[in-house]
Design a protein around this nucleic acid. Structure first.
Length: 467
RNA sequence: GGUGGAGUGGCCGAGAGGCGAGGCACAGGACUGCAAAUCCUGCUACACGGGUUCAAAUCCCGUCUCCACCUCCA
């Protein structure tokens, strides 16, 4: 059996995954700054790393997964004044929006989900350590900076040279010893929330919280640190800088998901091209959005278009409909089984597109088995397909995807439609095709598609108008 | 200016020296009262120009185009 390899941004190569603690895997993922509702780029990141977590779990590791919530920062303060809310009310509002989007898309909840504001003590301790050892300084205005020239190594992840960085145009640069020094802690402006520190009242800078929280929950070193590709610099570089300056080895492997683009450009709120999760869920079902966002390789750009989304949803319905027909013929639901080809694909740096090709193949073979009523083969193929879907977090039998009340409704509907199908069958038996087609067309107009199979007619809801 | 990534058939999208990934669309066929679904067959592509090699989408050199990051970003 093959074993897991993952692409590591630090070494720029695919390396075998060797856990620090045998049988365990620790992951820290940079979560959201909760200042606006989630768009599909945000949840893509969560889904990509959810697939990683699921695969590690399937592979037998005990996974500790941390995903933080940044609940204090400049944008949150700005937005709060615009929305006429307190900063904490705004942060909670959007934290909940993210949480419900993650739940809707069947992203497994992290082991712990720490908030920045809950870890001020740990941040102050870290700053104290760095000030004591001379890598950080408090110039007296309430800010605390990290002095990047004191570091033995810096910019190893993005492979840049300090001299090549375009210098910041910050107006407060006057307190910095070097314009490239970055703020770990920001002095409070009048009216802003603040926490007391030995260097004055203020609030955390963005980078400090992740160093402090990763250390709190995962210790001085852990297996995987993840995040979006846009976080490599400065965020992750600065996390490394702070943590290693404190003497912590920090993350062993760095993984970055590629971004979602629209019209060739990065999806972001400021560009005005972001597709909110809530808006996209008007178009496709939750499981279909998950399938779409998870089906690209995590290191490939995903270019969003409504057409691509629709196409992906149609492809997923084919699989779903196969499983439905298979379980009907088998008399029970498929049991998730990991096929060898799926295992190899996933172990190869989570090669989801390759896994998809294997699903397509199994689907074709399964359909043949269905046509021939080859129950043994049908069982095998449907089990493997369900196993693959489960790894991708897109198992149609997962209760996470069942709509409330759907089951009861479906049963009632089933009886009603069976009645209509019986009428249609008797019309067909007397070759009264006008009457039989009238029944089929009538059902179609109600959003019920009828297909005649060797096992008799089957019905399904046409999903186009749904959710 | 610096640092990365990318360009593959009508479209999407894997692969990374030699065996046509896969999907969608399209065309033909099988099945069907018709349709749908399903299956079978067809569609031989790797930005451009050089080079290395018995063999290049893959390696090397050069060029073009696009994207991301350079202290707000997932």
């Amino acid at each position: 059996m093959s074993s897991l390899t993952l692409y590591d941004t630090l070494s720029r190569s695919v390396l075998p995954f060797v856990p620090i603690r045998k049988g365990e895997a620790s992951i820290y993922l940079c979560g959201a700054t909760v200042q606006a509702p989630p768009h599909i780029g945000h949840v893509r990141s969560a889904i990509n790393f959810d697939i990683l977590g699921r695969w590690l779990t399937k592979s037998g590791y005990k996974v500790t997964f941390i995903r933080n919530v940044t609940d204090i920062d400049d944008k949150i303060l700005n937005k709060a004044s615009h929305e006429d809310l307190t900063w904490w009310a705004l942060a909670m509002k959007y934290e909940r929006a993210f949480a419900s989007a993650y739940d809707a898309l069947n992203v497994i909840r992290p082991t712990y989900e720490p908030r920045a504001t809950g870890h001020i003590t740990q941040m102050i301790q870290l700053m104290q350590t760095l000030i004591d050892n001379g890598t950080a300084y408090a110039p007296g205005n309430g800010d605390v900076y990290l002095e990047v020239r004191k570091l033995t190594s810096y910019l190893t992840l993005s492979r840049q040279k300090l001299e090549d960085l375009q210098t910041s145009t910050d107006s407060d640069a006057s307190f910095k010893k070097d314009p490239r020094d970055f703020a770990m802690w920001k002095a409070a402006k009048p009216g802003e929330p603040s926490w007391p520190t030995p260097w004055g009242n203020g609030r955390p800078g963005w980078h400090l919280e992740c160093s402090a929280m990763a250390h709190t929950y995962l210790g001085e070193t852990f297996d995987i640190h993840g995040g979006g590709l846009d976080l490599v610099f400065p965020h992750h570089e600065n996390e490394i800088a702070q943590s290693q300056a404190a003497g912590w080895p920090f993350a062993k492997t760095w993984m970055h998901n590629a971004l979602v683009t629209a019209s060739g450009e990065k999806m972001s709120k400021s560009l005005g091209n972001s597709m909110l999760v809530s808006a996209v869920l008007e178009r496709v079902r939750r499981i279909e959005l998950r399938w779409y966002l998870g089906s690209a390789h995590y290191r490939s750009i995903l270019e969003y278009s409504p057409e691509a989304l629709d196409e992906s949803a149609v492809a997923f319905r084919r699989i779903e409909s196969f499983l439905e027909r298979a379980s009907k013929l088998l008399g029970h639901n498929p049991v998730p089984v990991l096929g060898q080809s799926l295992i190899e694909a996933m172990n190869d740096d989570l090669a989801v597109p390759l896994a998809l090709a294997h699903i397509s193949e199994a689907l074709r073979e399964g359909n043949v088995a269905l046509a021939n009523s080859d129950l043994a083969l049908l069982e095998q193929k449907s089990n493997e397909i369900r196993g693959a879907l489960e790894v991708l977090g897109c198992d149609p039998y997962d209760p996470a995807f069942s709509e409330s009340g759907e089951v009861d409704l479906r049963e009632a509907l089933d009886g009603t439609i069976e009645l209509a199908l019986k009428q249609r069958q008797s019309a067909r038996d007397r070759k009264d095709f006008a009457a039989s087609d009238e029944i089929r067309d009538g059902l179609a107009a109600l959003g019920i598609a009828i297909e005649d199979t060797p096992q008799g007619p089957r019905w399904s809801i046409t999903h186009t108008e749904e959710r």
